[in-house]
Amino acid sequence: MTTSVVDAEPAARMDGAALRVVVVNGSPNQPSKTMGLVDVVLDMLGGMLPMETSRIDVYRLGPGFTGAIGRDDVTPEVEAALRLAEDADLLIAAAPVFRGTYPGMFKHFFDLVDQYALANKPVLLAATGGGDHHALVLEHALRPLFAFFQALTVPVAFFASAGDFDGTRLLNPRIYGRIEVGLADVADLLKARATSSPATPDA
């Protein structure tokens, strides 16, 4: 695949265009706190601009994904999931902390993503952990991964601890506040990136 930097340049915004949001979910649990956090992000984002959302659960992609060593090995369904992420207007990368960082399955997904497919693409980071001491997973693990991709990673990233949830529902109002601030920072940028038509002819 030969997606270039140019393909991800801002597309002209058409009237009524929606932001195509793709969530890459790195949690094995259903429901999960990680998606509880992302639900709040999507709710607030949906209040700011028109959008359409899809979600990729990396733990549900199956043997066609887990058995693939390279991009050529994946099954058509997994290829479609990878394309979906690569073609998003906004990618939300969300993962729980396992053994000190994002799960291997989550990384495996991005190991299969084309090296330049995320260049200049807005990426929002979200993570959950057992306690606040995991919060820097955003800055020390997730952000460098998307720096490799030369993605346009949103400055404010979102973290919530187990104690911020009642089950999988986020209750801590301070995290709601942070999400509001983080999204307001990039609302104009995201409006400009909204496109409901396919982003690139070769994608």
């Binding site: 911020d164 209750l171 801590n172």
Partner: peptide
């Protein structure tokens, strides 16, 4: 015990 969620609920 001190979790924000318990305090809120």
């Amino acid at each position: 015990g001190g979790s924000p969620a318990s305090a809120v609920s």
